[in-house]
Amino acid sequence: MQKLFATIAVIITGAILLNAVEDFPRFGDPHSPPNSGVSGGSVSSSVHYLQNTYLDTRVPNVVTAVLADYRGYDTLFETAVILTAGIAVFAILRVVRRKDEEESTGSEEKACSGEFSTSDSDGEGRHRVVVGTACRVVVPLAQLFGFYIIAHGHPSPGGGFQGGVVLGTSFILLALAGGLGSALGRLREDMYLRLACLGVFIYAGIGLLSLFFRRNFLDYGALSGLLQTGGEEMARSHGIFGVELGVAMTVTSVMFALFANLSTRGELKGGL
């Protein structure tokens, strides 16, 4: 019975959605408001941004400029949402044992020594030679690529979020290859928790700085005097980069924190 009702609800919703699709302009229609540049007699916002983004911010990639500058509030709170998700998972899953309990559950601290080791405490290391060697090659490249995506968000697709995810994935790869301990040795728990908060702090801090120059929150153009740039355009470009760095910090550490907590049920020991 429940299935019948669910099917009927899905069919009705699908029919409504399909009906609404007909009202969309066709893909690439030259007369649609975004493409013709006119909506109801006035210039449409998409054409305004396409024409003025490079003049305003010196950022060739319009998407980056819109995300981090024109809609800076949106991205700030998106980053805050990611931090909140990380904190929620941490609060639900993380198990902190007392010292005396810890000793009775076995000594796996050796794996946390920080060096890249393909062996871990339970003697499975011999089976991980292939994976470990592959990761030794892939992880540095992945991290380099992550930094490239973050730094190259201005002229090409990418930015703090994508780069942060790639960086976080590289730490996950490290955890899969050499046990969670070897990854935690690189990025300790207190470090990634601080890094996650620091990212949002950097973002909001750059926004707050412009308040001191009697401008609006997140108006990076106000920083032109502070950054010694010639005009406001370059200041906005640099502001976008600073904001992207903050986003990348939060995303990197939250992604790794999610994996570390999920794969060990919050014990941060052993691993998969």
């Binding site: 990639n61 998407v63 980056t64 995506i149 697709p157 990418g158 930015g159 979020f161 994508q162 995810v165 790639v166 976080g168 994935t169 996950i172 992604m255 999610l258 994996f259 999920l262």
Partner: peptide
């Protein structure tokens, strides 16, 4: 391309791992 990049990293990459 930007949306595709995000989907490649998040949808196809890290969500599967998680």
């Amino acid at each position: 391309v930007d949306v595709a990049f995000t989907e490649a990293t998040v949808g196809a990459g890290i969500s599967g791992a998680l």
